[in-house]
Amino acid sequence: MEIWSHEILSVIGPSNSGKTTFLRTLNRLSDLHTAFRMSGAVEMDKRDIREMDVEILRRKIGMVFALPLPLPLSIFENVAYGIRMQGVRNKHELEQRIEEALRQGYLWDEVKDRLDESAFKLSGGQQQRLCIARTLAVQPEVILFDEPCSGLDPVSTAKVEDAMVELKKKYTIVLVTNNVKQAARVGDKTAFFLSGELVELDKTDRIFTAPQDRRTDDYISGKFG
């Protein structure tokens, strides 16, 4: 399959259908698991990702996890973490990039006066937006979202979705979601996974209006899953 820049690819499918594994293959986070086996190849800008330096790859492909996972640091340090790890020491540059990232994550106004507080003091939705800002701060080209709204209420979910649509202008997005309607709302293209197999991949409106495969139809109309 191909993922084009500046589009949102939604990946849907029941649990254990291999969506998250697919996502973790893209930034090679799957390498951490000893049992992981990979066949085939993933290419980015025509280069096999297994031949790239894994740290540079992960800087280019950011990831937002299913649950809000702030690091046990202050709000500022959470966003600064990825930048610092690249060796940026300049305080002024840090502050500038952090403000920019927090603005893009729609969080700046809520936290600008409490940047030194622990990130755990934020609400769930704020934490998740912090995680998005943290990913943006590294200036990736692609952002992977792994069910980013599974733990959030509808209002927070809407905020995160807005952010995603906004981000599309600058980044390429892969969104794994359990929520079929979310895929319909934000995805340009949608892929349907079942039992570790890609069943169908097409423009989102085609998937939802005229799916080619019966299993896709059954899943999006709620017959199983």
Partner: peptide, 16 residues
């Protein structure tokens, strides 16, 4: 282990 994954996903090396 989620902390480790987050850190790695932000481009930090294993030792970092």
């Amino acid at each position: 282990s989620s902390f480790r994954e987050v850190s790695l996903s932000l481009g930090a090396s294993k030792w970092q």
